[in-house]
Structures are given as structure tokens and as C-alpha cells.
Design a binder for these strands. Structure first.
Lengths: 335, 335
DNA sequence: GGAGTTTATGGGATCGATCTCACATGGGAG
DNA sequence: CTCCCATGTGAGATCGATCCCATAAACTCC
């Protein structure tokens, strides 16, 4: 690998002058500039990123830790992150904690130690105190994605859970449904509260209240969707529509209804949340609330990049809107 | 951030001695070792990875470029990569070319410039010559995933497409199917040839030949699966089973059959390939050939790590086996 | 008791860049 | 004619580690 010294010798100038040409700053005569560029070309010189980063204290690298990169949801988010960071000419380094706090801490510290210029985090739990301290000591700006806050965060991007839930229930109400069940995620999950408010708003707009909807708390999984639906049917609960907290649940709901001999959407309408990868493959194709996951990632990355540009700026916060994706799982309420 | 000099001063020793303790090599007296460890603890010292890498020419970082990280398939592969690299105490840096040759080249060169110790590649096309040259000049070992070869590759991991296709068709034959259609991927795609051989083997085992199966060439997409199936039905082609080249195609096949009023598996059996994320969510749940994608990634990463350990070793090659996942889309052939 | 080896430690060059500072030149203003 | 500022260039310190080499003490072996 050619170094900056090789270039300087070949062009008959000093290291400093080559550096000026490469970084495009300071004064350089047109004549030497051309000679240097010629030498760079001929040697195929590319600056050593490590040395640059060590000396200048800027690595041009953004770090990200998400719960689990192996998942379509986060893969999609990473896609958004990469789109933004690449456009800005920065590299991206992603890793995951896989729901293990030690792994997660290790992954984040790794990013700090590799001198990332900034860090993006999508976590399920608050950050461990020692990790917070390490990030703070390194003066690395952090942007949080999702509802989970963090003391060192300088920015945050989150989904409009309120609006999404309001639209979902609103859509069911507009189709004449009055006996609605909502399968909700973990009660302590940050998003859940916002969604309940959204549901309340939709109901209020139709002169109803939370008393008019049945909420079942569980977890975001197909299994829960299935078992909860079966339980409702078994106890003879009367409902015409189900709003599932996410599309995994919705998949379980659809399966349970099929096994129970119920037709969707003739007997029961189902609406999901996320527009996950498999939503279109379910039968019937699932009507759902779309979360623009890649856009969330892109927005978060851009926010971080902005933070890097203007160090002293205030806390930045952005909310990303959802949209309704109409497929075939919602129909008019049966009389 | 505390540096090695801070530690050495606090412990009253030289930089060299601290380095020896941290790297755990060379001679250090027990007394000083303890003093140094105490100082490290108190200062919260963690070595600067950049400086280490610059000086020692080993970054402890593995790079990977796959076609598209945003996709569930590759996300799953990255999961496998991360499992292996993390276990080995190395960091992983992943990026994608998104089917753009320039992007892809940029991504790979970026990894080279960041001094990755080794590189993993899953590409759709042969590597551009200038990129090959850059990798060669940097003496970085490369492991290729998938069938696509590459001159600088020191190792390769690929799927047993032959066995997978043989098992798929064998399974259909075992269920009495004799009128089988195979929807194949791009003819120039490396895997396709191996699969055709596998199909031939399965047929031969039942005293049949390639003349007894209809092969339709197209592309790996739901749209093609749909249109190809529709075309077959329209032209009145007589078949009892379809072997789709991947699960996306299979999704299209199922949809077309449903729209045509055919029942699966009563009228037509369908088998896919990949066991993609959505295979279980299709209706009926898809019987398919499982590709252990994460295992492929893990194996490739381990192979690269092995290569890093023994620099002079020969070309390493591994084939990963498939397995049959039986769900509900294949049944006995109708008479 | 001297030669050779093992153990222990520090000094200083080095990796490949950036960046400050010193210095030189030339032209325009006063 | 001097002063100042814009332009142009290079020397050398520096980032934070690794690692080779010099040195010295302690120990082993004839």
C-alpha cells in the first residue's frame, strides 16, 4: 500500500502539501496540485483511514446497536441507516445485543472504542449506568430510536404510535364495527400507552370510550395472537373486529379464526400493526398500519449527522407518521 | 479517555510494561502486573483500537459485503456472521452494494481501507477487476459465500443446491407425483445448474429423466411465480405438482392457484426452496427445502477466522446441506 | 568464577496520517 | 520604502499504541 510519503516523494513535495491536496484545504499552487494528483493516480494511493482517524480524532464512522440485526424489522431499519450514512460519506458499523444486557454493553463499548463519531441505539431497556458513563466520557453524540430514552441521548426518533392506533381503530369504526377487541403488547412497553391514547381518541370521535373496547394484554407474538383469540372464542365473547398490536399477533389471530371456522373478513375483521414483511403473504392479505421502518432509520441517521455538524445544538426530536395499508382483512361489520 | 501513558505513570512503570500486561505477552513481574491492573481498573483504561490497529497492522475487524442487508435472507446471514465473529472477539462491519457495481466496489474498498483483517463476500456478479487488484495488493484473505467465485478468494461456502433440489423432487415423487413443473431461476445463475442435476438424480432414482419434467425459466420473484402458473393453467398444461425455485415464487404460485380455484394440496401440490421468513405464513403453510442461512454465514466466518490463524493454508471449501421442512402444501398426487 | 540463559524493564523508533508553526515570497497600500 | 497580508511550502510534533533492542539482574551449568 502506497503511503502519503510515497506520494510526496514521487511528486517532489512534502508530506504536508500532499495532505493539503487530499483534504482540500490550505494553500497549494496549481502546479504542485496537479503533480500530486498525478502521483496519487499512478500509485493508486488511498489514505490510511486508521491513521487519519487516530490523528484527527474523527473516524468518519457511525455506530449502531439494535436489538437484533437478524430480524427483518431491524434489517430494514439498518437499510435506512446505511442509505443516510453512505450519502454522507460515512461508514456504518452495526451490531446487536440480542436481548442480553452484557452483550449489548459490549457491543456499544466496542463502538466507542473504535472511535465512532456518533452512535445510534434502538434498545428495549434503559442503558446500563456504566455504559452511559463511558459514552459520556467519550463525548460521543447519541441518537435513540424508539421510545426508550437515555440520559446521554442528544436526539431521538420515534414512531407516531398514537396516530397509528387511532387510524387503525378509526378504520374499524368507519366500517361499522362497534364490538372491537384490542390485543395489546406488554403493558410496560413504552409504545403501549401511546397506542391506548390513540384508541381512546378514535373512540371519542365516534362518541365512544375505552369502556366500549376490550383490551387484552399479552406479548408481541404469533402464539399469543392465536391463544388469545381462541380464548375469546371459547368464552363466547362477542366481537366483530380485532386490532392486533403487531402483525405477528395478527398472523396468530388469522390462524385461530381459520381453525375456528370463522371467515375473515366476513365474520371477523382483523387489522394489524407494522406492515411487517409477511403481512402481504397472510391470508387474507392483512390490512395493517404501516411503520416506515427504513425511513425511521434514515431519519435517525440524518439527525445524528446533523448533530455531528453542529456540536452545541439542542436536543433534537422527530416523530415519524404511520400510514394505513388497506388489503383484504377488514370488511364491513356483520349486522 | 485514559491512555497507556496515563496507566504507566500511575503504576510507576514504562509504557512497554503496560503494553505487555494488556497484550499478555513477554515477561512481567507479578508485583508490577498487579500494580498495572490496579491502575487500569482505577482509570477505566481501554486501549485505543485505532492506535493498536495502526501499529500492529491487525484491526480485529472482519468486513462483509452482501447484496442487500435490508432483506430477511441476508439479515439472517449477518446474524450467523456476527455469532461467529463475536465469539472470536472480533468486530464485524457489514455493508451492501444493492446490486450496483460501483456501490459494491466502494463498499469493499472501504473495508480494505479500514484495514479489515479479512473479508466475506456474497455477490451476484463476479468481482470487478480493479477491486480484485486492490484486495490482492492489501493481502487480505477473502471468503466467498454462494456459488460466485473470485480469483482472490481463499475459501468458499456454498449451499448444497444439488441435494436440495433432489430432495424436493424426490419428495414429490414419493407422493406419487409424475407430472411435475419446475419453476427455475435465471438460467445464468450459478445455482440453477446444480439444481437441475439434483432434479435429474431424483428422477433417475424413479426411472425417469428430465424429459418427464417441465422446466420453466424465469426469475426469483413472486410475480413470476404467479404469471408462470397462470400461463400453465391457461394453456391447459396438465400437472399435479410445482417445485418453485424459491419461496417467493412459491407465494406467487399459491396465489395463482387460489385465484384459479385450485386447492392446495388436493388439486396441486407445491414445494418451495429456502424456507424463507414468510414460508410458514403462506396458506397452506409451505412445504419447502430449508436453507440454513445463518449457519452458512457462521460457517463462512469461521472459515475466514481459520484462514487468519494459518496464513499459508490451501483453499478451503465447504458445502452446507439443506433439509426438508414438511408443512401442508404437498399431498398425494390426485389419480 | 566466567559463560550462557532466563527473567524483567525501559528507551525509542515506528505505523501513516494531521496540523501547527516558521519561514519565504510577492504584491498592494500608505 | 516600509509594512502588512495573502499565498505557498516544509519541518517536526503528535495521536496512542506495538515492538525491537539494549541493559541488567538472577540463575544455571561446567
Amino acid at each position: 500500500m502506497a503511503t502519503i510519503d510515497d506520494v510526496s516523494k514521487r511528486a517532489g513535495v512534502s508530506r504536508s502539501t500532499v495532505s493539503r491536496v487530499v483534504a482540500d484545504n490550505g494553500y497549494v499552487s496549481e502546479e504542485k496540485r496537479r503533480a500530486i494528483q498525478k502521483a496519487i493516480e499512478e500509485l493508486g494511493y488511498r489514505p490510511n483511514t486508521l491513521a487519519q482517524a487516530l490523528r484527527s480524532n474523527r473516524s468518519n464512522m457511525i455506530g449502531a446497536v439494535v436489538v437484533d440485526v437478524g430480524t427483518p424489522y431491524f434489517a430494514n431499519m439498518v437499510y435506512g441507516l446505511q442509505r443516510a450514512t453512505r450519502k454522507a460519506g460515512k461508514a456504518l458499523m452495526v451490531s446487536s445485543g440480542y436481548a442480553d444486557q452484557d452483550e449489548e454493553a459490549r457491543a456499544i463499548i466496542e463502538l466507542v472504542d473504535r472511535s465512532c463519531d456518533g452512535i445510534l441505539l434502538y434498545l428495549e431497556r434503559p442503558l446500563r449506568a456504566d455504559v452511559v458513563e463511558i459514552i459520556r466520557a467519550a463525548h460521543i453524540p447519541v441518537v435513540m430510536i424508539g421510545r426508550m430514552g437515555c440520559e446521554v441521548a442528544r436526539g431521538s426518533v420515534q414512531l407516531d404510535n398514537f396516530g397509528g392506533a387511532r387510524d387503525a381503530v378509526g378504520f374499524l369504526l368507519d366500517h361499522g364495527h362497534r364490538k372491537i377487541v384490542h390485543l395489546s403488547g406488554q403493558a410496560d412497553f413504552g409504545d403501549t400507552a401511546a397506542r391506548l391514547e390513540g384508541i381512546a381518541e378514535a373512540l371519542a370521535a365516534h362518541g365512544m370510550s375505552m369502556a366500549d373496547i376490550k383490551v387484552v394484554n399479552g406479548e408481541f407474538s404469533q402464539e399469543f395472537g392465536y391463544s388469545a383469540t381462541m380464548a375469546l372464542l371459547d368464552e363466547g365473547h362477542d366481537f366483530t373486529a380485532i386490532f392486533a398490536g403487531d402483525d405477528d399477533m395478527a398472523a396468530g389471530v388469522l390462524l385461530a379464526l381459520r381453525h375456528a371456522g370463522k371467515s375473515v373478513p366476513l365474520d371477523v375483521s382483523v387489522i394489524g400493526f407494522d406492515d411487517a414483511f409477511h403481512a402481504r403473504h397472510l391470508w387474507p392479505p392483512l390490512t395493517t398500519i404501516r411503520q416506515p421502518v427504513d425511513e425511521i432509520g434514515e431519519t435517525a441517521a440524518n439527525l445524528l449527522l446533523k448533530l455531528l455538524g453542529e456540536p452545541g445544538s439542542a436536543m433534537l426530536q422527530t416523530t415519524i407518521g404511520t400510514s394505513l395499508v388497506v388489503r383484504d382483512s377488514v370488511g364491513p361489520a356483520r349486522p
